[in-house]
Design a protein around this nucleic acid. Sequence first.
DNA 1: GAAATCATACTTTTT
DNA 2: GTATGATTTC
Length: 704
Amino acid sequence: MFAQTEPTAALTAGPRRGEILAGWRLTDEQRAAATHDGGHLLVVAGAGTGKTTALTARLAHLVGSGCDPGRILLLTFSRRAAAELLQRAEASAGHAVARQAWGGTFHAVANRLLRRHGPALGLDPSFTVLDQGDAAGLLALVREELADVASGAGGPTAQPRRRRRAKPETMAAILSRVVNSRTPVSTVVPRHFPWCTAELDDLKATFAGYTVRKRAAHVLDFDDLLLCWQALFEAPGAGDELRGRFDHVLVDEYQDTNALQADLLAGLAAGGARITAVGDDAQAIYGFRAADVRNILDFPSRFQADIVRLEQSQRSTPPLVAFTNAVIAEAPERHEKQLWSARSGAARPALVTCADEGAQSAAVCERLLNHLERGTPLRSQAVLVRTGHHSDLLELELSVRGIPYVKYGGLRFLEAAHVKDLVAALRLVENPRDEVAWSRVLQLIDGVGPATARRVVLAATAGGGDARIALVDRAPSLAAGLAAAVGQLATALVDAASPALVGRAGAQVDRVRRWLDPQVAARHGDAAARLADLDQLAAAAAGASSLGRFLVELALDPPASTGDLAGPPLRDDDVLTISTIHSAKGLEWDVVHVLHLADGCVPSDMATGDDAAIEEERRLLYVALTRARDALYAYVPLRYHHHRRGRDDAHGYAQRSRFLTPAALEHVDHQGAAPVSDPDPAASAPGPAAGLAAVDRRLASLFE
DNA sequence: GAAATCATACTTTTT
DNA sequence: GTATGATTTC
């Protein structure tokens, strides 16, 4: 997986103490973190203080001191972070580390352990993994059935449902929060999902049914992965071995772990592992996923840990650090630290006030191109937004101007309907008991809706045999035409799962697509584009070692950007990054543009009302601002246009984000709106929305 | 009785 | 663009 690299001086220096890190350029703080010897350790690492370097150095130090790399566990927030760390460790500490150390997200590590030790729990190691969308699908299925049972059980047909029920995604979010925070449904719902309180009983019943169905279908959702890992600790036989499996556990981004994950660490610590947790409470931004800042705030007392602080920013220039320090200074509770920087660079961050969103897009492009002309390539610049669609208008503008970009976060590839269809079909190749997948795929057939799909699934899985084979010749009680269509689907799945194709994921995908492609083409007008998406997925699958692994990786580590699957074509081009702030965590660029710093965007109007949520939004802004090395632009549109029913054109004035306080603004230069765009429309060729703004301006000038 | 169709509302952040 | 709930069609 990792490229081989020449060992560096650090490795060849030999394992004598004190010389292990001789080749490293570390600050005193970083060295203290890397070489700490004793019990558990908390490294409070401010933004840009070189925490990855410190963590890598610690890994090298441990191995150099004689620790067995196979007994080191590295837990990171994303697989990408794990890969980077292991790669860097490999470069400096030798190949053995990357090959032998365990690394990945909590979920990926759980998956790996469960494939090996699942039977100790009575878990068939061939389970498939439900991502959150699949989980939502199964919850919807279960809820529908419960409702049918309730109304079919007689009595005056239940009161017409006038209330809108929680969306399946919301149910999944509730359930996940319940599990990860280990808090009962009856507490979680009123506190975090008050608008669902009326259906609390329905939710409880749905969750119970969901659990039963998950087990029957041999699937685990994300939360099950963690729960089952925890259960392994208690499993007779496997438990002792697993608890004592690691000597050192290094956890990155500890501020974004939840109660369940902290318990897993406690389990490992009880087995003798020494925990090193690295994180920054000022950058805790995953509260919505039940991450709890208390984990890092309470770590020293819970684990009797020593604390090392990293406060020297290696990333940002002093003026940027002064600004970001001022922004976070107003957060009420945190591990105290004062970041400073010894870097050169005197340019202050800029607050760019724009007339409206269109002007913001223009202003971004202008500054972007300025930096490009002055030598900062697009790939060293990033545009950061609170939510995926906050960049819609800018993307239009970029397309019109021919500026290439990749977007991370937001709407993801895997969420498109046709992609989910293919993935569901592939899951059936792996696991014919997966009801959610059956239900989805069957409904692709013309004339099959929820009710028919359910009947078919029920009949096919009844015998306990392979449902695919059961459906090849005789679909139960269906019109001849439908039965034939179901038979074709079943045949495709059986073929794809046949021994001749197993192990050749690419061929398996091809076989499934021979059935699926016509369905996709028939259902969607833009068939060409959608089939191209499927081509991408097929190409990625062809490169995987097996279909099962491919599907697990897809669930645990989905492609993060548009074009992540596409491979090299864009690689060597100079491409701008657009990212949600969440997806930008841990990354840095020379020049950073943060958009939409208006109340309602940052903080998001979804977060108002709850103090904790507001504080998380403050930290989110802090994360965004601290991604910049040399230049930072914060954009504030003053006016928003809302398009309603295609005709009405309402607008409203926005307030500058409340987090940009007077104290913070002392550290920025103010820039006005971008110059009004070129009066010649042909020369500037604005996108549709920007075009409207231009028309408005032209009209306004006529009225003067 | 079930599926297709229409109207309407709602769209954060992600392992 | 998509999911839901009500309505119409098969």
